[in-house]
Amino acid sequence: MIWDLHCHLNGIPGRTPDEQMARLIECADRMQIDRLVLFMGTPFLLDPKPEEFRDQNDQVLQAISHWHHRAFGFVYLNPIYESESLAELDRCVANGPMTGIKLWVAKRCDAASVDAIVRRAIELNVVIYQHTWLKTTGNLDGESTPEDLAKLARRHPEASLICGHTGGNWELGIRTVRDLPNVSVDLGGGDPTAGIVEMAVRELGASRVLYGSDVAGRSFASQLAKVTGAEISEADKQMILGQNLRRLMMPVLQRKGVRL
C-alpha cells in the first residue's frame, strides 16, 4: 500500500484540474501508488491573498471530486490572514471533504498567528503539513526552518505536525525534531540522496517517517527510490510508504465516515 503525502497540480499538463488529475492518476498507477494527497493549485503563490488561496483550494476540491477513492486534499492557508484562514479551514475541512492543512512560505511558523490555526486543527483532528527548509544558500523571508517548526511543536504537544522536506538539509532537520514525538518528517521534494531514510529511521523510528513525492516538480521515481532502495526492513518500508500516513489521517477519516 502506497500513499503519497505530497502532490501538486501545478506543472501537470491539462487545461483543467480534471484533466490534470487524470494525468496524475495515470502516472501514479504506473508506480502502484494507491492514494495521493493534493495541495495548492496553479500557479504556485508564495503569499496568496484570501481570494487567491480560496481559488487554489477550489482547484483541489474540483480535482479530487471524482477521485475520492484515490485522492485527499489538504487546505492551503496563509497565516498572515488569520481570520480568513480559519474560515477557509472550516469551509474546506470542517464542512468540506479536505483532511489536512498545508502551510507554505508566507510566514514563518513560529509566528503567533499560526497558533489559532493549530488549535483549530487539533479540534478537527487534522495534521498540519508545514514546509521547512534550511538552505545553505539562504531561505526566503517567510520560509520556516525545522527549528521554527520545533518551537511550534513544543507549544502544541497535542498537534500532529509534519516537517516538510525533512528540513531540506535532512541531517540537520532530523536532529532538530528528534525529541518531538508529535512531529513526523516528509521525505519528499529533495534529491534522492542516499542515507536519508536510514538516518530518519535510526533517529526518529520508522513510525515518524512519511513518503511524499512533491510531484509534479519531482518525479514519483526519485522519491519512491529513497524508500524502496533504503537499507531498512520491509516492515519499516511499508510503514513509511503508506501505513504511517493512514494512521495519522485515520481520526479525521473516521470522523468524516470515509471508508477505505
Partner: peptide, 18 residues
Amino acid sequence: HAPFFMLESAVLKLQESA
C-alpha cells in the same frame, strides 16, 4: 549518480515514463 543518489531513482524513472 550512485552511490550519492539512490540507484533505484534512475531505474524507476523508466517505469514512470511511457
